[in-house]
């Protein structure tokens, strides 16, 4: 596994992908921390896993099917009760389209 140094710029990019507006101070603290953690976990690169099936889950998951029966959903007031801003029946957010930032990250 590639054991490259993590740069401040990479950490800044990952923060952007993570949708975390981190301060310069946080980015500076995180850079060596991420580096030491990633260096440690790179240990799994020592193993030959060429013939091993990945295991995403502890139990053999199959599609769990049920009859399509209409059940009562949460009432609207409960759905909106924790919203920071709402105008029933909507969640209110600032302008979505036309911002400066590339929304694709």
């Amino acid at each position: 596994m590639a054991q490259q140094k993590i740069t401040l710029e990479q950490v800044r990019h990952v923060a952007k992908l993570s949708r975390l507006a981190l301060s310069e101070e946080e980015l500076a603290t995180l850079t060596p921390q991420l580096e030491s953690i990633l260096e440690y976990v790179a240990k799994i690169g020592e193993l030959d896993v060429s013939n091993v099936e990945p295991m995403a889950h502890a139990i053999d998951l199959h599609n769990v099917l049920r009859d399509d029966i209409v059940e009562e959903a949460l009432p609207l007031d409960k759905v909106l009760q924790n919203a920071p801003d709402s105008d029933s029946p909507f969640f209110k957010v600032p302008k979505v389209i036309g911002g400066d930032e590339d929304s694709a990250g």
Binding site: V14, R19, A21, E26, I37, G99
Partner: peptide, 27 residues
Amino acid sequence: RDIIELFSKSRAEGFGAEVKRRIMIGT
């Protein structure tokens, strides 16, 4: 300015250091 900034600032303020660290490692 826009919704991405709303996400990013809300998350940076709402999460503590360890949660941010793990989100960053995972991302």
